[in-house]
């Protein structure tokens, strides 16, 4: 078992080192008497493996003299190609470390950029709304509606904020109350945000929806204003 591992470790050395000293290293391992001695040689081989790939970056590259491009008869400049180049292990490690540092700096930069991400948990209007309830709804008699959770997003310039909003499920269908976000494929009338809690309903003049949040930021009430009529719906 240990001999097999040792042979694997020798094979993993750079090709030039392995070709030159690999057989002798195997011979030395075969001469070890006892598991402890073999284990010591094994540890030394692993250390050597790391040393050859990290501290001896040119060890695996057999330098050869590139042939000069032969002159052509018509004196047109000719170009030679370089030998296959393998980057040094230390260069790869340095590049990886720099990439990680750059990635972290980018993430931190985004985190502290002007655009802040806020998540509003808004409740979707359910299906128990009907024309009768809509006609009877007044500020003094709020209509009680079933509100289901959803998350969405939009960007506002003042204050600089990005608010996430996404309507899920099936909004009210076949009813004027059916609405969705602006510039989306959702059915119904689109909403256009004008602030963090107020949305204009595109397609209906003088209409908007305003959400009211509690101290924890959860929407617990919405007001739909259409031509001066205010309809307030509270989450049950």
């Amino acid at each position: 078992m240990l001999g097999h591992l040792y042979r694997c470790a020798v094979r993993l050395h750079p090709a030039s080192f392995r070709r030159r000293f690999g057989d002798e290293m195997l011979y030395i391992f075969d001469q070890q008497k006892g598991t402890l001695a073999a284990l010591g040689v094994m540890v030394d081989c692993v250390v050597s493996l790391v040393r050859q790939w990290t501290l001896r970056p040119h060890a695996g590259i057999e330098l050869s003299v590139a042939p000069l491009p032969s002159p052509t008869a018509d004196h047109v400049p000719s170009f030679g190609t370089l030998d296959p180049f393998r980057p040094r292990a230390s260069a790869i490690i340095n590049g990886a470390a720099l990439s990680v540092i750059l990635f972290c700096m980018t993430v931190i930069g985004i985190r502290y950029s002007w655009s802040h991400v806020l998540n509003l948990h808004i409740r979707e209007i359910g299906t128990d709304w009907d024309e009768q309830a809509r006609a009877q709804a007044r500020p003094s008699h709020p209509a009680w509606l079933q509100l289901d959770p959803y998350v969405g997003e939009y960007i506002s310039k003042s204050p600089p904020a990005k608010i996430s909003i996404q309507i899920e499920g099936d909004p009210l269908q076949g009813d004027h109350l059916s609405f969705s976000l602006a510039a989306t494929e959702h059915s119904g009338l689109p909403l256009k945000p004008v602030s963090a809690t107020k949305f204009v309903i595109v397609g209906l003049e003088n209409s908007y929806v305003a959400f009211t949040a509690d101290a924890q930021g959860r929407i617990w009430c919405l007001s739909w204003v259409e031509n001066g009529n205010v309809i307030t719906a509270q989450r049950q």
């Binding site: 000293f21 290293m25 030395i28 010591g40 040689v41 030394d44 081989c45 050597s48 060890a59």
Partner: peptide, 12 residues
């Protein structure tokens, strides 16, 4: 005591 890896690295 010199291990083979250290030995051949120095020998080279």
């Amino acid at each position: 005591k010199l291990g083979p890896g250290t030995l051949y690295d120095n020998l080279r």
